[in-house]
Amino acid sequence: TPDMEKFPGASAVINPWHLPLINTAILISSSFTITLAHHALKAGRRSATILWHGLTILLGIIFLSFQIAEYVEAYQELGLTLHSGIYGATFFMLTGFHGVHVTLGTLMLIIIWLRVLKGHFTPDNHFGYEAVAWYWHFVDVVWVGLFLFVYVF
């Protein structure tokens, strides 16, 4: 049929127990590291804040790198594209929007980390830091939902 020519469908779906599961572990770990950084900031332990926060940034960058690798695999090996039916379009729309938010969150984390390095926050005055941490937790929770509903179910 003409619709089948326009939307040929993917040859396979992405295995949720490979890169998606690794990325889920990475983002859940990053929630712990940003929480440890925040607690260190509230306790006045600047070097621990810098360390844990830097690790959170690294985990965000690793997540994005794996997401890119997954997209390459989807396109090249599975035939999963924006034009491969509702699954492909939904997959790339949901994971792509999430990836944009992770990218924005990682940039926010980098900016806040630079501010920590400059001593802009104190244990009692760090709302900007908390706001970025809340955003990061939100991005992490959304990913858990995406993992379940896009990859597993």
Results as ranks from 00 to 15, higher is better:
1 T>K: 10
1 T>R: 08
3 D>W: 11
6 K>C: 03
10 A>L: 06
11 S>P: 02
13 V>C: 06
13 V>R: 14
14 I>K: 02
14 I>Y: 02
17 W>V: 05
18 H>L: 14
21 L>N: 07
22 I>R: 09
27 L>F: 10
27 L>H: 05
27 L>R: 02
27 L>G: 00
27 L>M: 12
29 S>Y: 01
29 S>F: 10
30 S>K: 05
34 I>W: 06
36 L>N: 03
40 A>C: 00
46 R>M: 13
47 S>F: 11
48 A>Q: 14
49 T>H: 01
51 L>A: 11
54 G>P: 07
54 G>Y: 07
55 L>Q: 11
57 I>H: 01
57 I>E: 06
58 L>E: 00
58 L>S: 02
58 L>H: 00
59 L>Q: 03
61 I>F: 06
62 I>W: 05
62 I>G: 00
63 F>H: 12
64 L>H: 07
65 S>D: 04
70 E>Q: 11
73 E>W: 12
73 E>P: 01
74 A>R: 03
77 E>V: 11
77 E>D: 14
78 L>C: 01
79 G>A: 08
80 L>D: 04
80 L>W: 11
82 L>R: 04
82 L>K: 04
84 S>I: 10
85 G>R: 13
85 G>I: 13
90 T>K: 13
95 T>N: 06
97 F>T: 00
99 G>R: 06
101 H>T: 00
105 G>Q: 05
106 T>N: 05
106 T>D: 08
107 L>C: 03
110 I>P: 03
114 L>E: 04
115 R>M: 12
118 K>Q: 09
121 F>Y: 15
122 T>D: 14
123 P>G: 06
126 H>Q: 12
127 F>W: 12
128 G>K: 10
128 G>Q: 09
129 Y>E: 04
137 H>S: 08
139 V>F: 14
139 V>T: 14
139 V>P: 07
142 V>P: 01
146 L>T: 07
146 L>E: 07
147 F>M: 04
148 L>V: 07
149 F>L: 15
149 F>T: 13
151 Y>D: 00
151 Y>G: 03
